[in-house]
Nucleic acid binder design. Structure first.
Length: 815
RNA sequence: GCCGGGAUGGCGGAAUGGUAGACGCGACGGACUCAAAAUCCGUUGGGCUUUUGCCCGUGGGGGUUCGAGUCCCCCUCCCGGUACCA
């Protein structure tokens, strides 16, 4: 039996969906809205099966939600600024714009070939001036609010990409997220967005996403924000009364055990304290050495704690005793105050440092008798701690904070691990930062009516440690908007994560040339009801986008405070033990599979391959199964079965309708909870039953067969849309399947009448009896006890106990 | 180290505390065919057994329960995140 002509059918329906604009929507619509978005892709060129997996999920939801009666917006766009296009340009000499736009065209054709449907009237691309004009406009709003600022700071520098990176883009053991080159530290003037102002709100609002976002993404963001609670207090330098410094601690209760203090080598007070002393030279050498080391070295936990006494002491405010001050590389200038009180009794790092430098160790929390470790961080009564003695840790913390406040030297304090978002990039292919530097007026924003600041076409993209734009006089040389005098444009471009922080807002009103988006379309479509993308963006894109949403809310542009109501992170598609990617050389091209099995069979296999949240291993043979299934459905629906027999419907006919409706219930529930693999399995079971029914000797009853086939086709409509649409048409329907209502199951057909009751003896299955579904407990028990098989095991004796779970199971317990 | 998530046939995977292995791949046997492909039918966790059947089996060890892949405790290994964060 030949396979159906998938190629012709698929092209036919792809043309119709586009020609009839089946999935184009407006906000003038009575149906409830459903905003369905896939994280917009970087236009890398050819789609491989790893991408196809993700688009299949999104497309299924677009079609399913439409059938469920929603006004579904499914847009598509391109994350088209960024390093890869620029790197390709350097290699090939093709301008990044040309390179990128060619690839967008290719990918668009491939999405169409998959049968993925979008409202293409809302297509956008980050590199298009009509888009980045508004990225720049938004930057200016941040600037006005004081949320964008330029400062000189030690920043992460990727020597290979020749640009700075945000903290979030330094991954693993301190390497670049893009190219895995170890990152260095450099002091540079850079633009930051003040995401730290929103740390608490970003943390608080995660609560509302419980159950709607994957737990692990929520936890990763919580950890990244890294809130910790404790106290801050000041200490005096013993040798210089009046000179003070501040420390932050989460364990103020251990203050009596502070036997030394440690400064980060970069702490500004250090050079001042050693100036003109015998320690000056050694201190300078130590700082040099530390700062020369790479971040990786410095952060390596295995390394011994290097430190140096700098010749001064601080006064422990609790004891009044002087304690020596050290500088050490394990204290970071970027966290807390850059100085700590060291309590070796309760902190393992301090313990190790104390041992190495022969410093005093005083326990201030009594460890249990059997404690054999060094620093003790657990619960216990305070000891050696004056007025705190005997208190538990929590109470002691509170008492200490009260005392610090009463003394006027400290207060309760909260710290976050989150740092401001560094958005400057010293690269060409990105959105220009719309400011000019005037010798008289400093940083001056470009006036709105001069936006966009266009990215000029250039020949030489080679990264040189500063933006290639700096070498373009026609770009750099400008006039100051304030005074009209000569000024220079900012030449850094923005991190591409700025572009992607608001694109999903633009989709709501993509043609607007007076604002990033209008208030009404935004109010209608946002937030995104279902967002789908990769786990790799757990703390990058997903946190930046949340930050942008909150800022735009505060600017009065949005009503929402969270952009993504529900998030789904799909697993990776792997082959040969690695994520499918061009660079690994393990990509599977969809075209071969489209040619042999069709897009529908490929899609169905992606749905069937395993749980969507899990990584999945691609196997070429797997598509055989879904292809066979679709061909069987095709043959049944096109008349390849036993001759139908006109008759009053009987048991066999009712039975197949029962299977059909039970399948409908399961498939509906499975799609709702994203269990696509079991939904496909249920359809296959239904297919097997339907085939047995349609080819049985008695023959199918025509109405029953048609009804069952309709349900099969409707259910396949979102999974294997082309073949389903074609069969819908061929089985005599004059509507388009895409806009049909999702069917409802008949409750009477879904409830079971008879079930197979399991009979166990001591928990082991010994017999099965078909019983009425509404059998009562007594009857179930007596049926079970009457069973021949059960009596073989009980020997006719009285059972010790009979557990009845009618109608599913009876367990006869004998001893 | 800390925080998540895992471990089920040859393979991908099913399984509200109640028939472990649905569904599919692969393999084996058969039908059709001159033959092959395609298609269709059957078998397919391991062991024992002529059969009805019986025993064992969800990473390892304990426990709770009439009953545990599922719940609890301990351990091993794998994957992801994070890590001198005071």
């Amino acid at each position: 039996m030949a396979a159906y002509d998938h190629d012709t059918i698929e092209r036919k329906w792809q043309d119709r969906w586009e020609a009839e604009r089946t999935f184009y929507v407006t906000e003038r619509d009575d149906r409830p809205k459903f905003y369905n978005v896939q994280m917009y892709p970087y236009p890398s060129g050819d789609l491989h099966m790893g991408h196809i997996r993700n688009y299949t999920y999104t497309d299924l939801l677009t079609r399913y939600r439409t059938m469920r009666g929603y006004n579904v917006l499914a847009p598509m766009g391109w994350d088209s600024f960024g390093l890869p296009a620029e790197n390709a340009a350097i290699e090939t000499g093709i301008h990044p714009r040309v390179f990128t736009e060619e690839r967008i065209a290719t990918m668009k054709a491939q999405l169409r070939r998959l049968g993925a449907v979008y409202d293409w009237s809302r297509e956008l691309a980050a590199h298009a001036p009509e888009y980045y004009r508004w990225t720049q406009w938004l930057f200016l709003r941040f600037f006005e609010k004081g949320l964008a600022y330029k400062k000189n700071a030690p920043v992460n520098w990727c020597p290979s990409c020749q640009t700075v990176l945000a903290n979030e883009q330094v991954v693993g053991e301190g390497v670049c997220e893009r190219c895995s080159t170890p990152v260095e530290k450099r002091d540079l003037d850079q633009w930051f967005l003040k995401i730290t102002d929103y740390a608490q709100r970003l943390l608080d609002d995660l609560e509302d996403l419980k159950g709607k976002w994957p737990e692990r993404v929520r936890v990763m963001q919580e950890n990244w924000i890294g809130r910790s609670e404790g106290a801050e207090f000041t200490m005096e330098i013993a040798e210089r009364p009046g000179t003070t410094f501040t420390v932050y601690t989460t364990r103020p209760d251990t203050i009596f055990g502070m036997t030394f203090a440690v400064f980060a080598p970069e702490h500004p007070l250090v050079t001042e304290l050693v100036a003109g002393t015998e320690y000056e030279e050694a201190t300078r050498r130590f700082i040099d050495e530390v700062t020369r080391r790479t971040e990786i070295d410095r952060l390596s936990a295995e390394k011994e704690k290097e430190g140096l006494f700098i010749g001064v002491q601080a006064v422990n405010p609790a004891t009044g005793e002087p304690v020596p001050i050290f500088i050490a590389d394990y204290v970071l200038m970027t966290y807390g105050t850059g100085a700590i009180m060291a309590v070796p009794g309760q902190d393992q790092r301090d313990w190790e440092f104390a041992e190495k430098h022969g410093l005093k160790i005083i326990r201030t929390v009594q460890p249990p008798d059997d404690f054999e470790g060094q620093a003790y961080v657990g619960e216990g009564p305070a000891i050696n701690s004056g007025f705190l003695d005997g208190l538990g840790v929590e109470d002691a913390v509170e008492r200490t904070i009260e005392w610090l406040e009463a003394e006027g030297i400290g207060r309760r304090a909260v710290q976050y691990r989150l740092r401001d978002w560094l958005i400057s990039r010293q690269r060409y292919w990105g959105c220009p930062i719309p400011v000019v530097h005037c010798p008289d007026h400093g940083v001056v924003p470009v006036p709105e009516d001069q936006l966009p600041v266009l990215l000029p076409d250039i020949e030489d993209y080679q990264p040189k440690g500063q933006s290639p734009l700096a070498a373009v006089p026609s770009f750099v040389e400008t006039t100051c908007p304030e005074c009209g005098g000569p000024a220079e444009r900012e030449t850094d471009t923005m991190d591409t994560f700025v572009d992607s922080s608001w694109y999903y807002m633009r989709y709501a009103d993509a043609q607007n040339d007076e604002a990033p988006f209008g208030a009404d379309p935004a109010r209608y479509w946002l937030p995104i009801d279902q967002y789908i993308g990769g786990i790799e963006h757990a703390v990058l894109h997903l946190m930046y986008a949340r930050f942008f949403t909150k800022v735009l809310h505060d600017l009065g542009m949005l009503e929402i405070v969270e952009p993504f109501s529900r998030l789904f992170t799909q697993g990776m598609l792997t082959k040969d033990g690695a994520k499918m990617s061009k660079s690994k050389g393990n990509v599977v091209a969809p075209d071969d599979f489209y040619a042999r099995y069709g897009a529908d069979a490929s899609r169905l296999y992606h749905l069937f391959i395993g749980p969507p949240t899990d990584d999945a291993v691609w196997s070429d043979e797997g598509v055989e199964g879904t292809s066979r299934f679709l061909n069987r459905v095709w043959r049944l629906a096109t008349g390849d079965h036993a001759d139908p027999v006109d008759r009053e419907p009987g048991d066999a006919d009712t039975d197949i309708l029962r299977v059909a409706h039970r399948t409908l219930k399961k498939v509906t529930e499975d799609i709702e909870r994203f269990h696509f693999n079991t939904a496909v399995a249920a359809l296959m079971e239904f297919g097997n039953a339907l085939r047995a029914y349609a080819t049985s000797e008695d023959g199918p009853e025509p109405g029953t067969l048609a009804g069952a086939l309709d349900l099969m086709i409707l259910m396949l409509g979102s999974m294997a849309p082309h073949v389903a649409h074609e069969l819908w048409e061929r089985t005599g329907h004059d509507t388009m399947l895409a806009t049909e209502a999702w069917p409802e199951w008949d409750p009477d057909l879904v409830t079971v009448e008879t079930v197979t009751m399991i009979i166990q003896v001591n928990g082991k299955v010994r017999d099965r009896i078909d019983v009425d579904a509404d059998i009562d407990e007594d009857e179930a028990a007596s049926l079970a006890l009457a069973s021949e098989r059960v009596r073989e095991y009980t020997g006719g004796g009285e059972p010790e106990r009979v557990v009845v779970r009618a109608p599913k199971l009876v367990n006869v317990v004998v001893r």
